[in-house]
């Protein structure tokens, strides 16, 4: 698999480390009254789709950027790669 890094260009997936579902960047508000329930869902539950999946990858040996990669989990086709810092935070995840 090759990942088109927006800073470094098309690179081998060996250069990247995958963290998981991109909902992880939408960290719940720890001071909210329902924080415990929100964090339980945030930390443990996943949509786990067969199809397009947005996920966090880290380009350690390259630009050291966190990326949000939109990839098809059935074919590994990559549709979109964005810098994670440019992806709007949802505030709280669902």
């Amino acid at each position: 698999m090759r990942i088109p890094c927006p800073f470094c260009g098309d690179r081998d997936s060996r250069e990247f480390t995958v963290l998981g579902d991109a909902t992880l960047i939408g960290r719940p508000d720890p001071s909210a009254p329902d924080a415990l329930a929100k964090f339980t869902v945030y930390l443990h539950e996943r949509d786990n789709p067969a199809g397009l999946h947005r996920e966090l990858w880290y380009h350690g040996p390259g630009c050291q950027s966190w990326l949000v990669v939109t990839r098809d989990t059935r074919t590994h086709r990559i549709d979109k790669v964005e810098a994670a810092r440019d992806v709007p935070r949802e505030g709280t995840s669902r």
Partner: peptide, 18 residues
Amino acid sequence: GSTSLVASSAGLRLPIES
């Protein structure tokens, strides 16, 4: 590995990644 797909039809969101 296909549990999430079928379970989601019953409204379940599981602590599973495939």
